[in-house]
Simulated scan of single mutants.
Amino acid sequence: MFQYKGLNNNATSFEFENKKVLITGAAGFIGAALAEAFLNGFVKSTIIGIDNMNDYYEVALKKYRLSRIKERENFNFIKGDIADKEFIDGVFEKYRPEIVINLAAQAGVRYSIINPDAYIQSNITGFFNILEACRRYMPKHLVYASSSSVYGNNKKVPYDTQDKVDNPVSLYAATKKSNELMAHAYSKLYDIPSTGLRFFTVYGPAGRPDMAYFGFTDKLLRGEKIQIFNYGKCSRDFTYIDDIVEGIIHVAGKAPLKRYTDDGLSIAPYALYNIGNSHPENLLDFVDILTDELIRAGLLKEDYNIEAHKELVPMQPGDVETTYADISPLERDFGYRPKTDLREGLKRFVNWYAEYKGRI
């Protein structure tokens, strides 16, 4: 069972045993891993998972993730879309969740240029429906996913949640910043304890196929070239899935409190954190480590010429050169410390990939 290490005095702490936890996006990469961790760590809790099972990437992978948890006695999965207000109201009315963790969203920076409507429906309308349901049913804590993309092309690193983020470079980033503003307004108006988490490049087994490490692996095994943007002058704060999940659980167990200034003005029960590895990796080094692990696993030949399969290309619209999280507030308030280095994380991904591709 997870042991809370939280140190935040501006929060109220509670246990998850015998609690009802709603996870949206439960068939997604982070959502499914989080649901499994809850089910393993808190055997008397009830987990309600919802997901619309859309085909942004292969539905078979979403079904695979669910197959690991759907038979658990205290897991209830409901197929539905957070953009459907009647559906969300029905879920809240039936289950009355005490903790709500909203991970459902249309992800992907580049896809937001191709299909912007999906981002408005899921990330704006859907999140509004979640907030409205929280207003009516008042859970103990709302935790929701934001993104490192809100920082845009900020030159100051590491990124701090106190930095100005008024210049998004993609619609996806704009929707995530909107989520933070919407959540703050509802926290202020209706005393809904809410915490936003800005995720930094989450990777690992059963991850998203549209992410670089997954797509690179697919292409390298097919003998194709991989495109490395900004001519390799990119770095990402890669964060392993287990570290992300542990951080979410610690945060979810401590809701921010309503506070007051010295002159009696109220401060919303609202918090915002970066959740990352705080150790950016150059994309070229990342590719070399991934190649090493693919060779180790026998998926590529030992004499594989990775240099011949690299294609250095310009930066794509919506992308940024560097992501780098300042996680000191999360460490201060919750004792958060990522444990998984990039080589170990990619080793675990490659081992999973070999097994998964061998079974479908």
Rank of each mutant, 00 (worst) to 15 (best):
F2A: 08
F2D: 12
Q3R: 12
K5V: 04
G6W: 07
E15W: 03
F16T: 06
N18V: 01
L22N: 09
T24R: 02
A26F: 04
G28T: 11
G28A: 12
I30S: 01
E36P: 00
F38Y: 14
G41Q: 07
D51V: 10
V59K: 14
V59G: 01
A60P: 00
I69Q: 05
R72C: 10
D81H: 01
E86K: 09
G90A: 14
F92K: 03
L103C: 07
A107K: 09
G108S: 13
D117F: 06
A118P: 00
T125H: 04
F128S: 08
F128Q: 12
Y137W: 13
K140S: 11
L142T: 06
Y144I: 03
Y144M: 05
V150Y: 13
V150F: 14
V150G: 11
Y151L: 02
N154Q: 11
K156Y: 09
D160F: 11
D160I: 07
Q162P: 00
V165E: 12
P168C: 10
S178C: 09
M182P: 01
L197C: 11
G204I: 03
P205E: 08
P209E: 09
A212P: 04
F214A: 14
L220V: 08
L220H: 08
G223R: 02
K225G: 10
D242Y: 04
I244Q: 08
G247L: 07
I248N: 08
V251K: 05
K254G: 03
P256V: 00
T261R: 13
A268R: 03
A268F: 03
L272S: 10
L272K: 05
S278C: 07
E281I: 15
L283C: 06
L283K: 08
T291E: 13
D292Y: 04
A297P: 04
L299N: 00
N305D: 15
A308T: 07
V313I: 15
V313H: 06
P329D: 10
R332T: 13
R332P: 01
D333N: 15
P338F: 01
D341G: 09
L342W: 02
L342R: 01
R348K: 15
F349T: 02
G358C: 00
R359N: 06
R359V: 12
I360F: 13
